[in-house]
Design a binder for these strands. Structure first.
Length: 818
RNA sequence: GCGGGCGUGGUGGAAACGGUAGACACGCCGGCUUUAGGUGCCGGUGGCGCAAGCCAUGGGGGUUCAAGUCCCUCCGCCCGCACCA
C-alpha cells in the first residue's frame, strides 16, 4: 500500500495561493444578476501586538458562516479592517517614542499575514484601517453632519476623568467607578466637552430591540442601560424664595406620604437655599465633603445615609404641607432633576434616611403587614377622600390627572442613559473638525477642507490637555467664517466613534466623493450576521445602533434601515485550565504555535469542535492532536480512494454495505445542514462528519462499491469545508477534480433518510426492557404485539395486570403493569 | 437587592418536540502493525454487581405512562445593573 502523508503546510499554502491569485472571495458591487446577498461580519479587531486565540475563534466562526452562505447560493460580503486608533498604541509611543502610526501599521501587517495564513475567506479589496485619512475624513464628515443638525454639541458638565489615562471617559467606559482600560478610580471634573445626543434616540433604541435577532441577555443589558422609567414630574414650591422645584417620581401615588424633600449636593440651589439660615455653615461643609468624596464610595448602596437640613421648606402640591428640605448624597444630580420627594413609608432609601434622622413616616398604601418600608401595591389610605380606597395603580393615574389639571405636574419619562461624551484629551484619534473663533464661536471645518489631518508631534504625553495642543502651528488657523485668527479643537474623538460606522464603509470603501453610495449600502445592509464578543454588548453595539438611526434620519441611509445588525452572535472565550489566558499567568497559547505545528485547519476545526461557540471553552493540547488525526484520516482516505478505487458511478444494484454508507452519508448531509442553518452548532456538525468517516473505514474493507466510497468521502469533505477549508478542498479535488467552493451545498435525499425498519424501544413501567426491529409503517397494534413478544418484556409482564399501554409510533411502546 | 445564564462520566461536550441519558472527541485500558515512535489500525471504557438487575443529569419535592428537559424549593458558580427616586 502506498504511503499517503497529510501535509497541511503544503496543502494550505497551495490553496491560499489559488484564492489570492483568483480573488476568490471578492464580492462584486454589481448587483445586476439579482443574486441574493448576505453580509457576514465579525467585529473588526483592534490591532495590537499579534492576534490571539480569541481572534482565531471569532474569525473561524465568521468564516464558517460565510462559507455556508456562499455555498447555499448567496453572494457574501466578508470584509476586514482595523480599529486602529486608541490608547495602547499611544501609551506605547509615550514609552518608546515610536510613532503610534508605525507601531499600529506593524501590528496591522501581522494581523493581515495571520488572517491570510488561517485561510480566511476575506474580500481583501475592501480593507482599511480607521486611522487612515481616507477613512477618518468621513468620520469627521459624519461628526459635522451631526453637529449641523444639533446632534453633536459642546457643554460644560460634570464628567468622568481618568487620572491615569489623563482623559475623560464616556459613562459606558466607567465600570464600577473605574476606568475601563486603566482600572483607576475616576474623578468628577467640570469640563467643557463634546457630546452626541444619543438620549434623543432612547425610545427608538429601546423599542427597536424587538425587531432584531440578538441574544436575549444582550438586549436585556441594553434595556437596563437605557433605563426607561415612567412616572410623573411634580412641582414642589419653596414659598420663601418663590422657586419651583420639579421632581421626578415613579410613584405619584405615594405623594401624600411625602414627609421631607431631598436635594443632591451638586444641586446648584443648595447653597443659595441654605444662605442666611442657621444651617449655612454645616451645609457648606457637607456639600464640600460630598464633592471631594470618592465617587465609588459614595455610590455604595450599603453606605449609611447622611445629610443636612437646609432650614427651608417646600410645599407638597397635593396637600399644602410644608416639607423640610435636606441635602443628602444619596440623591444623584445626574438622574431626574437632582431633587426628590421622600416617602419613607414606601421607599427603602427614604426610610433609611428617615430612621437615621428621626423623621416622620406616614403610610399611604395598605400592605400585608405593618412592616416598613412597603413598596408593593395596595389600597390607598390617608391621602385625600377622592383617592382613598382606590387601588394604588388607579390612584396613580388619578393623581397625575389631578396634577395636570392643577398645573402642578404632568406624566413624564426618565432615562438612565446619558448623552455620549466623545471628546478625549489624547493624541491617537480622529481630530474633531471644529475651529474655535473668538468672534464666531465653534465653527465647523468646511467639507472641502476635510480631512483635518492629525499632525505629527514630539511628545505624546497628555498633561491634562490634549497633546495636540503642543502642535502650535497646527492649532493656529483662521476662522472659516470671519477669516479672523482662530484655534483648532485639540481634543480627538473616542475611538468608538470610528467603529460606529465602519460596517457602512465596507460596502463602498473606495468612494472618494461620499462616505458611501446609499444605493450600494441598501443592497448589503443591514448586516445579516454580526459576530463578536459580549464585552461590546453596551458600548459599541449601542453606539452603532444610534449612528444608523441618526444617519438614516439625516437622509444618508435608506429610511427603512433602522438597525445595523439583524442578527447577532456572541462567542465565548477560550480558557486554559478554567482560567483566562493572559501574559501574566504565562498560560497563553498563540495561534502561530498551533498553526505551525498542525496547520490552520486543525486549529480552526478544533476551536469549533471544542463546544458550542457561544460558551466559554477550555483549551486542551491533546484535543487539538485528536482533530489533527481526524483531518489526516479524512485526507488519507480521500487520497487513497482517489488513487486506488476506480471512478465508477454507484451501481444500480447496491449491497448492504453500500446501503449503510449511503444512508449515513445522507444522514450526515441532513445533520450538518440543520446544524448550520439557523444555529451555530458547529461542534455537532463536525461530529456528524466524524461519524460519517467512521462508517467509511470498516465498509471500505467490506463489500462497498468504489462509487459509494468515493461519494461518502467527497461528501464528507464537502460538509467539512466551512470548518477546515484547505483540507476539505484538497480532499474533494483529489476525488472529483472539482473545486468544492464552486459546488453547491449537498442536498440530502429524503429517500435515504427514511428507513424500512427501526429499533423499537420496549418499556415496562417506563423502564427499557428490550428492543425489537419493527417495520417503519407498522400500526400501533403491530408495535404493541412486537413489544409483548420481546423476551425480556414477557419476563416483566409475567403474572401482572396490564393497566395501560402507550405507543409512540416510530419510537417506543410502554406497558404499564401493576 | 434586581435582571439574565449555567450546573450531565476522569475531561470537553451530545440529547429542537417530555420518549433509548452519555453522540462525537480527549484521556485511560487491552490487542495488532512498526527497528522505534508523540504513527496507523482493531476492541473496551458512567458507577455498583458473577449475573438477573439496581443506581445515576447540583440537593429535595411535584406533575406525568414517561422528566436532563415542565413546575416549586434549596444550594453552588458565572455575567450584567445597582442609592435611578
Amino acid at each position: 500500500m502506498a504511503e499517503y502523508r497529510y501535509d497541511p503546510a503544503e496543502i494550505e499554502q497551495r490553496w491560499q495561493q489559488v484564492w489570492a491569485d483568483e480573488g476568490t472571495w471578492e464580492a462584486s458591487n454589481d448587483f445586476s444578476d439579482g443574486q441574493q446577498t448576505s453580509y457576514v461580519l465579525v467585529m473588526l479587531p483592534y490591532p495590537s501586538g499579534e492576534p490571539h486565540i480569541g481572534h482565531l475563534k471569532v474569525y473561524s466562526v465568521g468564516d464558517a458562516v460565510a462559507h455556508f452562505h456562499r455555498r447555499t447560493g448567496r453572494r457574501v460580503l466578508n470584509p476586514m479592517g482595523y480599529d486602529a486608533f486608541g490608547l495602547p498604541a499611544e501609551n506605547h509611543a509615550i514609552k518608546t517614542g515610536q510613532h503610534p502610526r508605525d507601531s499600529t501599521d506593524i501590528a496591522i501587517a501581522e494581523f493581515r499575514r495571520q488572517f491570510r495564513e488561517w485561510g480566511m475567506s476575506i474580500d481583501w479589496t475592501r480593507e482599511f484601517g480607521t486611522h487612515e485619512p481616507r477613512y477618518y475624513r468621513w468620520t469627521q464628515w459624519i461628526f459635522l453632519e451631526l453637529f449641523n443638525r444639533g446632534l453633536a454639541y459642546q457643554k460644560q458638565a460634570a464628567v468622568n476623568w481618568d487620572p491615569v489615562e489623563e482623559t475623560v471617559l464616556a459613562n459606558e467606559q466607567v465600570i464600577d467607578g473605574r476606568g475601563e482600560r486603566s482600572g483607576a478610580l475616576v474623578e468628577v471634573r467640570q469640563l467643557k466637552q463634546w457630546f452626541f445626543r444619543i438620549t434623543d434616540y432612547a425610545d427608538r433604541l429601546l423599542e427597536d430591540l424587538d425587531t432584531i435577532r440578538w441574544p436575549e441577555h444582550v438586549k436585556t443589558m441594553q434595556r437596563n442601560w437605557i433605563g426607561r422609567s415612567e412616572g410623573a414630574e411634580v412641582v414642589f414650591r419653596c414659598e420663601e424664595l418663590e422657586i419651583d422645584y420639579p421632581v421626578f417620581t415613579t410613584r405619584p401615588d405615594t405623594l401624600f406620604g411625602a414627609t421631607f424633600f431631598v436635594m443632591a449636593p451638586e444641586h446648584p440651589d443648595v447653597l443659595r437655599l441654605a444662605e442666611g439660615t442657621e444651617h449655612e455653615a454645616e451645609v457648606r461643609q457637607y456639600v464640600n465633603r460630598s464633592l471631594t468624596d470618592d465617587t465609588q464610595l459614595r455610590g455604595d448602596i450599603d453606605k449609611e445615609k447622611t445629610g443636612v437640613p437646609l432650614g427651608r421648606t417646600v410645599t407638597n402640591p397635593v396637600n399644602g404641607e410644608q416639607l423640610p428640605i435636606y441635602v443628602a448624597d444619596y440623591v444623584l444630580m445626574e438622574y431626574g432633576t437632582g431633587a426628590i420627594m421622600a416617602v419613607p413609608a414606601h421607599d427603602e432609601r427614604d426610610y433609611a434616611f428617615a430612621k437615621a434622622y428621626d423623621l416622620p413616616i406616614r403610610r399611604v398604601i395598605e400592605g400585608p403587614d405593618d412592616e416598613f418600608p412597603y413598596s408593593g401595591d395596595g389600597t390607598l389610605v390617608d391621602s385625600a377622600p377622592e383617592f382613598d380606597g382606590l387601588h394604588n395603580r388607579a390612584a396613580l393615574e388619578a393623581i397625575v390627572r389631578w396634577l395636570e389639571r392643577e398645573g402642578k405636574g404632568h406624566s413624564s419619562v426618565n432615562y438612565r442613559l446619558r448623552d455620549w461624551l466623545i471628546s478625549r484629551q489624547r493624541y491617537w484619534g480622529t481630530p474633531i473638525p471644529i475651529i474655535h473663533c473668538p468672534a464666531c464661536g465653534a465653527v465647523p471645518v468646511a467639507e472641502q477642507d476635510l480631512p483635518v489631518l492629525l499632525p505629527d508631534i514630539e511628545d505624546y504625553k497628555p498633561r491634562g490637555r490634549s497633546p495636540l495642543a503642543t502642535a502650535e502651528d497646527w492649532v493656529r488657523t483662521t476662522c472659516p467664517q470671519c477669516r479672523g485668527p482662530a484655534q483648532r479643537e485639540t481634543d480627538t474623538m473616542d475611538t468608538f466613534v470610528d467603529s460606529s460606522w465602519y460596517f457602512l464603509r465596507y460596502c463602498d470603501p473606495d468612494n472618494e466623493r461620499a462616505p458611501w453610495d446609499p444605493n450600494i449600502v441598501a443592497r448589503w445592509m443591514p448586516v445579516d450576521q454580526y459576530i463578536g464578543g459580549v464585552e461590546h454588548a453596551i458600548l459599541h453595539l449601542l453606539y452603532a445602533r444610534f449612528f444608523t438611526k441618526a444617519l438614516s434620519d439625516l437622509g444618508h441611509l435608506p429610511s427603512d434601515l433602522q438597525e445595523p445588525f439583524s442578527a447577532l452572535f456572541t462567542q465565548g472565550m477560550i480558557l486554559r485550565d478554567g482560567d483566562k489566558m493572559s501574559k501574566n499567568k504565562g498560560n497563553v497559547i498563540s495561534p502561530t504555535t498551533i498553526v505551525e505545528r498542525f496547520g490552520a485547519d486543525t486549529a480552526r476545526a478544533y476551536i469549533l469542535f471544542i463546544g458550542p461557540p457561544d460558551q466559554d471553552a477550555d483549551w486542551s493540547d491533546s484535543g487539538v492532536e485528536g482533530m489533527n488525526r481526524f483531518l489526516g484520516r479524512l485526507w488519507r482516505n480521500a487520497a487513497e480512494a482517489a488513487d486506488e478505487l476506480p471512478d465508477h458511478p454507484i451501481p444500480d444494484e447496491i449491497n448492504d454495505d453500500d446501503e449503510r454508507l449511503l444512508r449515513k452519508t445522507h444522514w450526515a448531509i441532513d445533520k450538518v445542514t440543520s446544524d448550520m442553518s439557523d444555529r451555530f452548532n458547529f461542534n455537532t456538525a463536525i461530529a456528524a462528519v466524524m461519524e460519517l468517516l467512521n462508517e467509511v473505514t470498516p465498509v471500505k474493507r467490506g463489500d462497498a462499491s468504489p462509487g459509494a466510497v468515493r461519494f461518502a468521502l467527497s461528501t464528507a469533505a464537502s460538509l467539512l469545508f466551512p470548518f477546515a477549508p484547505h483540507t476539505a478542498t484538497d480532499a474533494y479535488h483529489l476525488l472529483t477534480g472539482e473545486r468544492v467552493w464552486e459546488q453547491p451545498w449537498p442536498d440530502a435525499d429524503q429517500a435515504w433518510l427514511e428507513r424500512p425498519t427501526f429499533e423499537l424501544v420496549c418499556q415496562v413501567n417506563g423502564k427499557v426492557r428490550d428492543r425489537a426491529q419493527a417495520p417503519s409503517d407498522a400500526s400501533k397494534d403491530e408495535l404493541l404485539a412486537l413489544c409483548r413478544q420481546a423476551p425480556r418484556v414477557r419476563a416483566h409482564l409475567d403474572g401482572r395486570d396490564v393497566v395501560k399501554e402507550i405507543v409512540v409510533p416510530g419510537k417506543l411502546v410502554n406497558i404499564v403493569v401493576r
